[in-house]
Amino acid sequence: MGAVSAILIVLITILFPPIGVWAVAGCGADLLINICFTVLGYLPGHLHAFYLEYIYYDRREQAREGRYAARRAPGVYSDRVQTGGYGYGTMVPPGTH
């Protein structure tokens, strides 16, 4: 399922970069930056969107392997992208400890 979603995100990003960014980063600073880049020029919007998607899927694969990046990726403001959609820790449900 991961490869299929990645291909779908790339196809969407080719058509309209902000939708691809929204899909991986959500509504936040990265989306606003991408909208500005897309308005200023179609190519900068694509480059920014593909960079965010690369970071997202790379960090997602690292998290699946149990490795977490020690440093934040430059130019990425979304914690969701930084962690690959996973959190850095787990929370214990209340009352179970």
Rank of each mutant, 00 (worst) to 15 (best):
M1E: 11
M1W: 15
G2F: 08
G2S: 12
A3I: 06
V4M: 12
V4G: 10
S5Q: 10
A6K: 15
A6R: 15
A6M: 12
A6W: 15
I9M: 09
V10Q: 09
V10H: 12
L11S: 13
L11A: 12
L11I: 05
I12F: 06
I12Y: 03
T13A: 14
T13S: 13
L15Q: 05
F16K: 05
P17M: 10
P18A: 01
P18K: 00
I19M: 09
I19H: 01
G20L: 06
G20Y: 03
W22M: 13
W22F: 15
W22S: 06
A23V: 07
A23I: 11
V24C: 07
G26Q: 11
G26H: 13
G26D: 07
C27T: 14
A29D: 07
A29V: 14
D30S: 14
D30L: 09
D30H: 11
L31W: 05
L31Y: 08
L31F: 15
L31C: 06
L31H: 04
L32N: 14
I33G: 09
I33H: 09
N34F: 04
C36K: 12
F37Q: 13
F37G: 09
T38I: 13
T38A: 09
V39Q: 03
V39Y: 07
L40W: 04
L40H: 01
G41E: 03
Y42V: 13
Y42K: 14
Y42Q: 08
L43S: 04
L43P: 04
L43G: 01
L43E: 03
P44K: 07
P44S: 12
G45Q: 14
H46F: 04
L47A: 14
L47Q: 13
L47M: 13
L47V: 10
A49D: 01
A49C: 02
F50W: 11
Y51R: 00
L52G: 01
E53F: 00
E53S: 11
Y54C: 10
Y54V: 08
Y54S: 15
I55D: 02
Y56V: 01
D58H: 10
R59N: 12
E61C: 00
Q62Y: 10
Q62V: 04
Q62R: 13
Q62D: 10
A63F: 04
A63L: 02
A63I: 01
A63G: 05
R64F: 07
R64C: 02
R64D: 00
R64P: 00
R67V: 05
Y68T: 15
A69I: 02
A69V: 03
A69H: 02
A70E: 12
A70G: 08
A70Y: 06
A70R: 11
R71I: 12
R71Q: 13
R71C: 05
A73Q: 03
G75A: 04
V76W: 02
V76G: 07
Y77L: 09
Y77K: 05
Y77F: 15
S78T: 04
D79G: 15
D79R: 03
R80T: 05
V81W: 11
V81I: 10
Q82L: 02
T83H: 12
G84Q: 03
G85A: 03
G85N: 12
Y86H: 10
G87P: 02
G87T: 09
G87W: 05
G87H: 02
G87R: 14
Y88Q: 03
G89H: 08
M91D: 11
M91F: 11
V92S: 07
V92N: 14
P93E: 04
P94T: 04
P94M: 10
P94L: 07
G95D: 08
G95L: 04
H97A: 14
H97R: 15
